[in-house]
Simulated scan of single mutants.
Amino acid sequence: METIRIFVESLIQLTGITGSAVPIVRHIALVIVAVLLAWSCGHLGRHLLIPLIHKITAHTAAQWDDQIFNDRVLRSACRIIPALVIRWLLPMVFYQFPIVRDILERLTDIYITIMSVRMVTALLTSVQQLNTAHSSSARQYLQSFCGVLKIIVIFIAVIIVAAIILDKNPSTLFAGLGATSAILMLVFKDTIEGLVAGIRLTSNEMLHKGEWITVASAGADGTVDEMTLTTVKVRNFDNSITTVSPLTLVNGSFQNWKTMQEGAGRRVKRKLFFDFRSIKIADETLKEHLRQHHLVTEEQLKDENVVNLTLFRAYMEKMLSESKEVNADMTLMVRQLEPTVSGLPIEFYFFIATTVWTDFEHAQADLMERIYALVPEFGLKVYQQYPMQ
């Protein structure tokens, strides 16, 4: 630094400038030298340092370094270099003007702080975008903790900038925050609760991106499109987006269909109400009709008091268990529920072998339509209430 000042003084003497013009020329020359040095360092960083780092990362087998040290991160770092040079040269340039030097030093420090925060946040964003497709939980952790780190970095930067403006030691301001922590927690109560809920949501692996969830309280029914510490975006099946707070998911309840989609089948649970007046002991005419259509076995007809509904339930279980659309290895039953004024409910409980939504709906409809069509064959009637005329 002293060498530069002496060099400038020598140039002034060589030019023959004397008198009151010397200080003015000296400061102009020193400013020009400082600006040129700062520009040169920034230019070297952008056109020498960045290509060099790219070449180094390109020759490594790992892919994470290419993603982390991208152009955005490196250019943010290069913007700090000229400011550091200016900060280093300010005491020399304005050594005769302490007030101007102090103001420019503070402004430069603020600029360096802001650019450093931009560089760190860009670096954390690159970390968040790392390819962790093989582990969705790892991606969730990266998203969560990088989000927390961004908030911490920005908070520290605000304190440092405030300390620079007030000409205070940052540690003094940090110590003073202890007295106002209760007020801050009250003001940012919802934000803090949301952050904690977001961390709980990801750390306990309650939810992952791409999963199908239903949140009745928020009217959300679709796949998770995006997850952050403060919001969960759900793309509904009508392509609308519902934004849900993590606090709502943690404190309330939501339905996650992940295990169903990954399972061996999707459940069907349907009820059919039968008219009590159609439930009767099977007579010989009905038995003969059922024999001709191969709907019963002789073993079932040995009981003289066998009820048509009993034969119906037995055939339905047999038909469902033999259907290729039904997973017979999972729970399958046709059971009777508590009687109601609307008839006797019979519940069909079984699992379709596919979990693909459209295939499931088609298979379910085919089976239930077959069941509806077979009801009259057993002399039964479905209870239905006719609309008022």
Rank of each mutant, 00 (worst) to 15 (best):
W212Q: 01
D238C: 03
G19Y: 00
Q385I: 15
K209C: 03
D238L: 03
V250Y: 10
A179Q: 14
L177Q: 13
P376W: 01
E361V: 03
V306L: 04
T3A: 13
Y141P: 01
S181E: 07
V73R: 07
I68W: 14
V148A: 07
L249K: 10
I371S: 05
A163I: 13
K381V: 11
F69A: 01
Q129W: 00
T259C: 01
Y141D: 00
L374G: 00
L142Q: 04
L48F: 11
V93A: 06
S253F: 10
S10I: 12
A179T: 09
M388R: 09
I24F: 07
D329S: 13
A138E: 01
E211C: 06
P387W: 03
K55S: 11
L90T: 07
Y111E: 08
S323P: 04
I112V: 15
E193C: 07
L89C: 06
N204R: 07
V356F: 06
A197T: 05
S135C: 13
T331N: 04
M206C: 05
F378Y: 11
N256D: 14
L44V: 15
I183L: 12
V85T: 10
L14M: 10
Q13M: 06
F188L: 06
T121A: 02
P345T: 14
S203Q: 03
A264R: 13
P345K: 06
W64E: 04
R335P: 00
A29T: 05
Q389A: 07
C78K: 02
R101T: 07
I53V: 15
T214R: 15
V22L: 05
N131S: 11
I183K: 08
G178Q: 13
A162F: 14
A175I: 12
G379I: 05
T230C: 01
A34M: 14
D109S: 14
S135D: 04
G265M: 05
A162L: 15
I103G: 03
Y111N: 09
E9A: 05
V25Y: 02
T285I: 07
K269W: 11
V341I: 06
S181F: 15
I86F: 15
V8D: 02
L48K: 11
